Measured scan of single mutants.
Amino acid sequence: MDVFMKGLSKAKEGVVAAAEKTKQGVAEAAGKTKEGVLYVGSKTKEGVVHGVATVAEKTKEQVTNVGGAVVTGVTAVAQKTVEGAGSIAAATGFVKKDQLGKNEEGAPQEGILEDMPVDPDNEAYEMPSEEGYQDYEPEA
Rank of each mutant, 00 (worst) to 15 (best):
V15T: 02
A90T: 08
V40D: 00
G31L: 05
K96E: 09
E104R: 00
V118K: 11
G111M: 11
K58T: 09
F4P: 12
K80C: 04
Q79K: 15
E57L: 08
Y133L: 03
V66T: 05
A90V: 15
G7C: 04
D98M: 15
A69T: 15
A90D: 02
A27L: 11
K80T: 03
K34G: 03
E20S: 01
P128K: 08
E46N: 14
G67F: 03
G25M: 15
V63N: 00
G101R: 07
T92N: 14
P120Q: 09
K21N: 09
M116C: 06
G106L: 05
E61K: 07
P117K: 12
V49Q: 05
Q99M: 03
Q79C: 06
D121A: 10
E105A: 05
T72W: 14
A30C: 08
K96L: 08
M1R: 01
E130A: 06
A107P: 15
V40G: 04
E20M: 10
A29H: 01
A140N: 09
T92I: 10
E131S: 03
K12C: 08
G73S: 01
Y125R: 07
T54E: 01
D135C: 07
K58G: 00
Y39D: 01
S42M: 07
K58S: 08
V16S: 14
A29L: 06
M127N: 07
K32N: 14
A89Y: 15
Y39T: 07
A140F: 11
D115M: 07
G41E: 05
G132P: 03
G31K: 13
K58E: 01
Q24F: 09
A18G: 01
V82C: 09
V118F: 12
E57S: 13
N65W: 02
T81Y: 11
K23S: 10
E130H: 09
A89T: 11
E83C: 11
D115R: 12
V49F: 05
E130T: 11
A19I: 06
K60Y: 15
E130P: 10
K45I: 12
Q109D: 06
Q99D: 01
P120G: 05
A91G: 04
N122C: 11
E126G: 08
A53Y: 11
G31C: 04
P128I: 07
T59Q: 00
G67E: 02
M1L: 00
G47N: 13
V118Q: 03
V71H: 12
E137N: 12
G67A: 13
V37R: 00
G132H: 13
E126V: 08
V74D: 00
Y133A: 09
E126M: 10
A124S: 06
E104H: 07
G51L: 05
P117G: 09
K97D: 05
E104P: 10
V15N: 00
K21M: 03
G86S: 13
A91N: 15
V71K: 11
G84K: 12
D119Q: 08
E28P: 01
A89V: 13
G101L: 06
V70S: 10
P108N: 13
G84V: 14
E61A: 02
V70Y: 02
S9A: 05
V26W: 11
K60N: 02
G14L: 06
K34V: 03
V95F: 12
L8M: 02
G31Y: 14
P108R: 09
G106C: 11
T72G: 10
E35C: 15
E13T: 13
E105N: 03
E104M: 14
M127E: 14
G73R: 07
I88R: 08
E139D: 14
G132R: 11
D121L: 01
P128E: 08
E139A: 15
V55L: 11
G14F: 08
E13L: 05
S42G: 11
E126R: 12
A90I: 09
E13Y: 14
A69K: 12
S87Y: 11
T54K: 08
E28Q: 06
D115H: 08
A124N: 12
G31Q: 07
M127L: 01
L8N: 00
I112L: 05
G68V: 13
A11I: 08
F4N: 01
L100I: 04
Q79M: 10
E123D: 07
A11S: 14
L8K: 00
D119M: 13
A76Y: 15
Q109T: 03
V118W: 05
K96A: 13
D115K: 11
L38E: 05
P117F: 14
Q24G: 06
Q134I: 10
L8I: 13
K32M: 02
E57V: 14
F94E: 05
K80R: 12
A107D: 14
G106H: 01
E13A: 05
K23D: 01
L113R: 14
V15Q: 00
E20A: 01
S87C: 12
P117I: 10
V74C: 05
G93W: 11
E83M: 07
K6A: 09
L100Q: 12
N122I: 05
E35K: 06
E104T: 07
Y133M: 06
V74G: 01
G86I: 01
Y39H: 04
G73C: 08
P108M: 15
V49I: 12
T54S: 14
S129Y: 12
Q62V: 09
Q109I: 10
H50S: 09
K10Y: 11
A78Y: 10
G47R: 10
G31M: 11
K96T: 08
A69H: 13
K102Y: 15
L8Y: 00
K6H: 04
T72Y: 06
G41V: 08
E46V: 02
A124C: 07
Q62F: 11
K21F: 10
A29G: 13
V77R: 02
G51R: 14
K6L: 02
T75L: 06
K12H: 09
G47T: 14
G25H: 08
S42I: 15
D2R: 09
G47V: 14
G86H: 13
G86Y: 11
G41I: 11
A124M: 15
I88Q: 01
N103P: 04
G106W: 11
N103I: 07
G31T: 15
V40N: 01
G31F: 15
V77E: 01
D2C: 10
Q24D: 03
S9P: 01
G51A: 15
V70R: 00
E114T: 15
K97E: 02
E46T: 15
G31S: 15
A30H: 04
A19Y: 05
G106A: 05
T72K: 05
Q109A: 07
T44D: 00
G68Y: 15
V95A: 15
L113V: 04
G84C: 11
F94T: 08
V118C: 03
